[in-house]
C-alpha cells in the first residue's frame, strides 16, 4: 500500500466536495473571536482550516452529548436497543484530538463494551490536520508529546506552502485517496520537507511544565491527599466546564423520559461531570466529594494517575481546553508547575 501522497492546495476544495459525495462532512467553523466548533458542513467556504481547539472536542461525534440508548413501551413491556449513527467524515482533526479519541477507545472497548460508541466509531472517517506550531499559550502538547501525529486517523494532512503531504493511516483512508484521483505520489523532496518540519517542531514544542513526562504520574501520587493543592482551587466555581470540554472525560448520567401518555418512553444518556454537586452523592444524601477542591484534585488524578495505572496512558492530550475555557482562569500548566515546586520528586 502506497502510504504517502501529495495534494496541491488548489485541489483541496475538490477533495472536500468528493468527501461530501460519499458522506456527511463535519469540520471546524468559526463561532466567535476565539471560539470554533466542529459542525456539519454544507458550504465549504465556512471551514476554518487554521483554528484554536474547538469548544467541544470531536468526542461529541463518538459519544454524543445526549443520546437514546433504549426505547420502551410500558404496556407491552418491550424494550428496543437503539444506536444512533451515521456515515460521517471529520475533516481537520488536530493532532492532540487524535490522542483524545485513542484514550476513549481504550476505555470503551473494555468489557462491558460500549456498543453504541463502537458502532458509531465504525461509521466515522477521521481526516487529521497536523499542527505545525502552538495554537496558543494554554496548550501543553509539548510535555504530553502529542504534537507529532502517530495514529488514530484514516488520512493525515500536513500543510506546506503550496501542498499538503498526505499520510494514509488505514485501508479506508487509502480507498478515499485512490477513488478521488486528486492525489500524486509523494517524492523524495516531499519527505525531506516533512523531516525538516518535524525537526523544526521539536524545537518549537518544548515541555511547558517543570517536570518530565515520566514524572507527571509520580507528581500526582506525591501530591494526592497532601497540602500541595492549597489555594489552587479556591477560585473554582464547580461549573463543570473543564470536564465537558475535555477530550478524554467520558462520564455520563442515564435518565428515563416518557411521553405524556405514560406509555412510550426512552432511556437517555447525557454527559455528566465529576465537578457537579450531585455527582458523588449517594442514597441517604452522603456526598463523597462535597468540597469543590476535592473534585478538582479528583479530576487531576483522573488525567495523570488512575488511567496510567489502568491503561498505561496519560488522559491529558495537552489541548489546553480546560484552561482556555475556565472562567476562573484556573490553568493546568500553572497548577502542575506549582505542584512541581511544592513536591520534591
Amino acid at each position: 500500500m502506497q502510504r504517502y501522497y501529495v495534494l496541491n492546495k488548489n485541489k483541496l476544495i475538490n477533495f472536500l466536495s468528493f468527501i461530501q459525495s460519499r458522506s456527511k462532512l463535519a469540520a471546524p467553523v468559526k463561532k466567535g473571536e476565539k471560539s470554533y466548533a466542529f459542525e456539519y458542513i454544507t458550504d465549504l467556504e465556512k471551514i476554518a482550516l487554521h483554528y484554536l481547539p474547538t469548544i467541544l472536542p470531536v468526542k461529541k461525534y463518538f459519544l454524543p452529548q445526549r443520546e437514546t440508548l433504549i426505547e420502551f413501551n410500558k404496556k407491552t413491556r418491550k424494550t428496543t436497543h437503539v444506536i444512533e449513527f451515521e456515515e460521517l467524515t471529520l475533516f481537520g482533526v488536530h493532532t492532540c484530538d487524535l490522542v483524545g479519541m485513542q484514550c476513549l477507545n481504550a476505555v470503551m472497548v473494555e468489557d462491558p463494551k460500549d456498543i453504541n460508541y463502537l458502532e458509531r466509531k465504525n461509521k466515522l472517517t477521521v481526516i487529521a490536520f497536523e499542527c505545525n506550531s502552538y495554537c496558543d499559550e494554554h496548550a501543553t502538547c509539548g510535555i504530553m508529546r502529542t504534537f507529532i501525529p502517530s495514529s488514530g486517523y484514516d488520512i493525515l494532512f500536513t500543510e506546506f506552502d503550496t501542498y499538503f503531504l498526505i499520510h494514509i493511516g488505514t485501508t479506508k483512508g487509502s480507498e478515499i485517496v485512490n477513488e478521488s484521483r486528486l492525489f500524486d505520489v509523494a517524492q523524495k523532496e516531499h519527505f525531506d520537507e516533512l523531516n525538516k518540519l518535524r525537526k523544526r517542531k521539536e524545537e518549537i514544542f518544548k515541555p511547558e511544565i517543570n517536570a518530565s513526562y515520566d514524572e507527571l504520574k509520580k507528581l500526582m501520587e506525591r501530591a494526592c491527599c497532601t497540602g500541595a493543592w492549597e489555594g489552587i482551587f479556591d477560585k473554582c466555581l464547580s461549573c463543570g466546564t473543564c470536564t465537558n470540554v475535555c477530550p478524554t472525560c467520558y462520564c455520563f448520567d442515564i435518565n428515563d423520559d416518557i411521553d405524556l401518555n405514560l406509555l412510550n418512553g426512552c432511556r437517555m444518556r447525557t454527559w455528566d461531570s465529576c465537578q457537579n454537586e450531585g455527582f458523588a452523592k449517594v442514597a441517604g444524601g452522603e456526598n463523597f466529594r462535597e468540597e469543590r477542591k476535592n473534585r478538582q484534585v479528583h479530576r487531576y488524578m483522573r488525567k495523570f494517575k488512575y488511567p496510567v495505572d489502568k491503561y498505561n496512558m496519560y488522559f491529558c492530550t495537552g489541548c489546553g481546553r480546560c484552561s482556555r475555557a475556565c472562567v476562573a482562569k484556573i490553568s493546568l500548566k500553572e497548577t502542575m508547575n506549582l505542584l512541581s515546586e511544592r513536591i520534591k520528586l
Binding site: 466567535g32 466548533a37 466555581l237 464547580s238 463543570g240 457537579n276 454537586e277
Partner: peptide, 20 residues
Amino acid sequence: PEKSVCTECKLNENECMFDK
C-alpha cells in the same frame, strides 16, 4: 439538576459569554 447552567451551555456548544 444539581449542576450549573454552564454544563448545559457547553453541551450546546455556545460561545462563552465571558469570551465575548
